[in-house]
Structure formats: structure tokens, C-alpha cells
Design a protein around this nucleic acid. Structure first.
Length: 569
RNA sequence: CGGGGAGUGGCGCAGCGGUAGCGCACCAGCUUUGGGUGUUGGAGGUCGGGGGUUCAAAUCCCCCCUCCCCGACCA
């Protein structure tokens, strides 16, 4: 493509309303333009990127045995009333009415429509399993569209649905999709992990969220940089979570020491006052368990993972103390709670609360703490459980390497839904004995347009985008530095020849044949981010070479004029 | 939906009672040609919309719309 004819205008300044780097770079580079909050036009370069992601998704879905179809964007509300999700989605759906006042919505997802499609065609166990998918625009009237393509009101989504006769079949379909997703996101160049997720609105049992690591992500998760371990922060554990150091003989323990800490209700301020670190303090966290007082203990540099605490005291129900609870127990001063309070009935501690040293902790008296408080001598523990939150740097439970706690962008999700929709919408099959059963469904989504943003979030630098080769709109960015000197004609002719030769060899080339200064061309080439830049100038031609630069690494080398095509194919 | 901020040429911004300006981009010329060249001259705006105050409103007041931030919410 000749840039002189490409529908493209790059911007030196990003629009003021762009709030993440992917949006700034995609808008500056002329890939997308905002039309309304959360709604974007995809200009030619952007459309090519979107098609590339689509192509990868399509290839992997087809390879996994799924069949592509196209379902309507406009869906009758009647179907949503059948499934009971009309009210559930509520104002999240764009709603519209036709001239006869029949209610419709713009598809936020397609479980209803696809289930209705299958029930209309298939009714026998012989028909199953079947796995259907589409790549189609979806609409959600988000309360707050933001982060550009990452949370839009219109977004391109691959949604797929499997229909099986039983749970074993579902598990096989699910695994096939899980594996296909792993290949898709790998080919897209994303650093990602599948994370076991909580069941959301779709109402499934087992599900995984594919999280792409990114600072602008909206969900926290824990992952290992060395192996495939990944988990929600609520369920994550660490290698030493169950280990516990041996106790130390009484004689070796200094006596407790009282500390006056006026107006210091909190770990950080006490640690600062004593000139020590947070992890030398013992955090005591009060909770209610069946009307009794419970205390949870973690090192001062950790939070109590409430989900883990709830699991530790199960089957009894627990509830975090509120200000009212503290008001009802004046002997339990918030911010100064100690570990040996007389009315405590259940003590849960993280194994990191070891017996190898004394702790600084509250003295159960306002404005007082105590030092040299030892497990065994000064406080007891009823239940040991890994209730401290996992932090970056903790050892991985699988491989003992370093865990990271990061934000992630949910780029895909796989659900084992079961029979929720098939029951409500009557998608039944007859088994070999003539009995009817609801089909067992799985549901699989990939945010195609969101993936584009996630790729830019991961692959950019201060100059612009660095597209992975599989995603780039063009493989090669050919820059002609013709100028107006006496060599201009020769440079132009040489660049033209290279452009045509590359095209003839099947290489996608973006050819900067504009009458612009070198600085403008180089800046645009870096901003637009094609994987390889070729520069043709008078200096190089005199030596019989063109210069090659790898955008992502900045590596440069020279190619003989005759060898350019060979080096790019 | 609650709290805060902002709408002025395609983009970024200034002006805040006296009839609209700067940078980038755009057009024409000269200049420059290996990292957003310099210069001259142009074109382009009913200052988000409506109502009001005033001799006079981008500027002050009221209503509405849109956008952004924080929160709530969330495949």
C-alpha cells in the first residue's frame, strides 16, 4: 500500500480523552477514531489488525472442530424473557422497538439465539456433539465505558457454544476450546495465563478466564513467571504457606516489653515509630464467627484474605468486624488489638506467624503496643491456615520460583454452563432409549477488539506500537528518502522497484512514498509499528544497500539491493 | 446513579463582558532532505444546544446535551 494513497492521518498529540496507552497510540497512529463514548471506527490500518486477530481466532476454532455461523445482532427481547435474562441484564442492554412496537435488543451475547437455533434443528443424541461460533459485534451500554477498546459499548467478540449429551462430552469440548484459546493468545503474542474464575452472570460451574498481563487490567491475579501457575488473588497460595518454624526454648526469649504508642492505630505508623519494618509486626484482625469473637493473624506486611479465612473456619460462617462490632466490645480497641485477648474464642493464624522470633503487636489497650510477644508463651493458635494474601515475590506453590501479583485484562473466558439455557429454552435431545434430556452446554468467548488493545498494551515503547508479526497490518514498512536532490529520481525508482518486487513475492508492504521529510517518515514508521522497516536513501543506494531495522528490538542491519526480497520472505 | 472537572477550526490549547487567537495538521510558494526543517502567504470556527441578563455574551445566570475523572457496577 502506498502511503500517499492510504486513508490515514497520524496525530502528533493524542486526544485528551484517551486514558490508556493502547487508545492513545491507536488513535495517534490512525488505526481507530472515537465516534462516541465506547464506540470506535476502525480505519484501514485498524481494520487490517482486527482482521488478523479474527483470522487467528477463526483458524484455531476451525482446527478445534468448531463451525462458524453468523447470528443476528438484533435479537427479539422475547428470547431474553424466555431465559429470564431480560431483567438480569436490565439497562446494560441497548433496547429498541420496531414500528409494531415489538421489543428488541442489540446483542450483548448470544446464548439465547444460538440455543434457539440448535433446538430448532437438532433433537437427537446422534446429532451431538456440535460446536458453533461466530465473530460478531456485541453491544453493552456500560455504566462507564473507558480504557478505549478495553471496555467499549460496541466490541467485536468471538462467541462459541458447545452442545453435548453429557458431562463427559462437555468436558472434552471444554478442553478442546481451552487448548484452542491457549494457541490463539500465544499466536497473538500476549503474555497470559488461564485463571480459574468465579461463576459470573452466565451462571456456569467450572470456568477459566484468560488474563493478559497488563498494568491497565481491571482484575488482580497471581501468576508464576516460570511455570503455568495462575490463580485469583482470593484462592492463590504460596510455597511455604503450610510450613512452620520450630519453637524456641523459653530461656532464649526476651520478656515482653510494653510500648507507649499514642495515636498510632495501625501497622505502618507503629513500624515507622519503632524504626522497623511492617513484617516485624503481628496484625490482628477481628471477625465474628457464629456470634463468637475470632482473631485472624498475619504478618504486618500482609492483608487477611477474607475468602481464605472463610474457608478456614468453614462450615461455620464468618463476618468481618464492623465499626458497630467494635463499639460493642470496648475491650477490643481497633488498631491496638493484641493476640492474647481473654474473650477470643477462635484464633486463626497464617503459618508465617512462626515461633522463631518475637512480634510487635497491640496490647489490647488504646495507645499501647507490646514487643517480644512470642507464639506459645504469649499467645495460642487454634487453626493454622494460609490466610495471608499472596504478594509479588512469594515462592510459587508449583515450582518455587517467583510469583507476581498483577493486573490482567480478561481477553477470553471458557464456561461449562451445563443445562441452564437448554432447560429454559427447551433445547432437548432424545437419547437411544427414547428419553428426552436437556443438551449440556459450554460457552466460550474471546474479546477480539479487546485483544487488539491488549496487544498494544504489551507491545509498545515511547515511540509507538511494536506489532507482533502475526498481527501487524503490513509485514514491512518501506521508507523512501527521495528528497529533491539529483538522486531523487533514482531513489524513487529504486524504492518503487523494491515495493513491486516485494508485492510480487507476496509480502504485505506499507510503502512511504510521500513527499515528506525523513524525520516525519521515521517517526510515523515507529508510531505505526510494522515489524520491519526498510529505508531506501541516496546514501544506501550509492553503496548498493538498503537499511533494515527491526521495530521491536531496534536492531539494524544492511541488505544488498538484490537480496531485499529474499530477506523479507 | 452520587461527587468532581471540561466542552473554542481535524488534534492539542489560550482567551473569561467590547464583535475570536496560538501550536500541530491542511492548501500554495520558497527552503530543507538520514530522526516530527525553516519561512512567507492562505483556507477553515453560528466558541456543545436552548433560554435569559446587557448597548454589547465564547466570557455572567438558568436549563439541557456530550465528554473526562473518582466511586458504585461489571462478559
Amino acid at each position: 500500500m502506498r502511503m500517499s494513497r492510504l486513508f490515514l492521518r497520524t496525530l502528533r498529540d493524542a486526544p485528551a480523552d484517551a486514558d490508556v496507552e493502547s487508545q492513545r497510540l491507536l488513535v495517534r497512529g490512525g488505526y481507530i477514531r472515537k465516534v462516541a463514548a465506547g464506540i470506535f471506527s476502525w480505519l484501514p490500518l485498524g481494520a487490517r489488525v482486527l482482521r488478523n486477530v479474527e483470522r487467528i481466532v477463526r483458524e484455531e476454532m476451525d482446527a478445534a472442530g468448531a463451525q462458524e455461523l453468523v447470528l443476528p445482532i438484533i435479537q427479539p427481547l422475547e428470547l431474553w424473557q424466555e431465559s429470564g435474562r431480560d431483567d438480569l441484564y436490565g439497562p446494560l442492554m441497548f433496547r429498541l422497538h420496531d414500528r409494531k412496537d415489538t421489543g428488541f435488543c442489540l446483542a450483548p451475547t448470544a446464548e439465547e439465539v444460538v440455543t434457539a437455533a440448535v433446538r430448532g434443528e437438532y433433537s437427537s443424541y446422534r446429532d451431538l456433539p456440535v460446536n458453533l461460533y461466530q465473530i460478531q459485534w456485541k453491544y453493552r451500554d456500560e455504566l462507564r465505558p473507558r480504557f478505549g477498546l478495553l471496555r467499549g459499548r460496541e466490541f467485536l467478540m468471538k462467541d462459541g457454544y458447545s452442545f453435548d449429551t453429557d458431562l463427559d462430552g462437555l468436558r472434552a469440548s471444554y478442553q478442546a476450546m481451552f487448548d484452542a484459546y491457549t494457541r490463539v493468545f500465544t499466536r497473538c503474542g500476549l503474555t497470559f495465563r488461564p485463571v480459574e474464575g468465579e461463576a459470573g452472570e452466565i451462571g456456569g460451574d467450572i470456568n477459566h478466564e484468560f488474563m493478559a498481563v497488563a498494568a491497565v487490567g481491571e482484575d488482580d491475579f497471581v501468576w508464576c513467571r516460570s511455570c503455568d501457575y495462575a490463580a485469583n488473588v482470593e484462592v492463590a497460595t504460596r510455597r511455604d504457606a503450610h510450613a512452620r518454624a520450630a519453637e524456641v526454648a523459653d530461656a532464649a526469649r526476651p520478656a515482653p516489653e510494653s510500648l507507649h504508642t499514642p495515636g498510632m492505630p495501625g501497622i505502618a505508623i507503629v513500624a515507622q515509630h519503632l524504626g522497623t519494618t511492617d513484617d516485624q509486626l503481628l496484625k490482628c484482625f477481628a471477625f465474628d464467627v457464629g456470634g463468637r469473637l475470632g482473631l485472624a493473624r498475619v504478618p504486618g506486611d500482609r492483608e487477611v484474605n477474607e475468602f481464605a479465612l472463610a474457608r478456614a473456619v468453614a462450615p461455620e460462617a464468618m463476618r468481618v468486624f464492623t465499626d458497630d462490632d467494635f463499639a460493642a466490645r470496648p475491650g477490643l480497641p481497633k488498631g491496638y488489638i493484641g493476640p492474647h485477648h481473654p474473650s477470643v474464642e477462635l484464633v486463626v493464624a497464617d503459618p508465617a506467624i512462626d515461633a522463631a522470633h518475637g512480634w510487635v503487636t497491640g496490647a489490647n489497650e488504646v495507645d499501647h503496643h507490646a514487643a517480644n510477644v512470642w507464639f506459645g508463651r504469649d499467645f495460642r493458635v487454634d487453626v493454622w491456615a494460609p490466610i495471608a494474601t499472596v504478594a509479588s515475590g512469594d515462592p510459587c506453590p508449583q515450582c518455587d520460583q517467583v510469583l507476581s501479583v498483577d493486573r490482567g485484562i480478561e481477553v477470553g473466558q471458557v464456561f461449562q454452563i451445563g443445562t441452564k439455557y437448554s432447560e429454559k429454552l427447551g433445547a432437548l435431545y432424545t437419547d437411544e432409549h427414547g428419553a428426552q434430556h436437556p443438551m449440556v452446554m459450554g460457552c466460550y468467548g474471546i474479546g477480539v477488539s479487546r485483544v487488539v488493545a491488549a496487544i498494544v498494551e504489551e507491545h509498545h515503547d515511547e515511540h509507538g506500537i511494536c506489532w507482533p508479526a502475526a498481527i501487524a497490518p503490513y509485514a514491512v514498512h518501506l521508507v523512501a528518502l527521495a528528497g529533491r536532490g539529483e538522486a531523487a529520481g533514482e531513489v524513487r525508482a529504486t524504492a518503487d522497484r523494491i515495493y513491486e518486487a516485494l508485492r510480487a513475492a507476496g509480502v504485505d508492504v506499507l510503502y512511504d512514498d510521500r513527499d515528506a521529510s525523513p524525520g516525519v517518515k521515521f517517526a510515523d514508521a515507529d508510531l505505526l509499528g510494522m515489524p520491519v522497516q526498510l529505508t531506501v536513501g541516496a546514501k544506501g543506494i550509492a553503496r548498493g544497500i538498503v537499511e533494515r531495522k527491526v521495530r521491536a528490538t531496534g536492531e539494524r542491519d544492511e541488505l544488498a539491493l538484490a537480496g531485499v526480497v529474499g530477506a523479507c520472505t
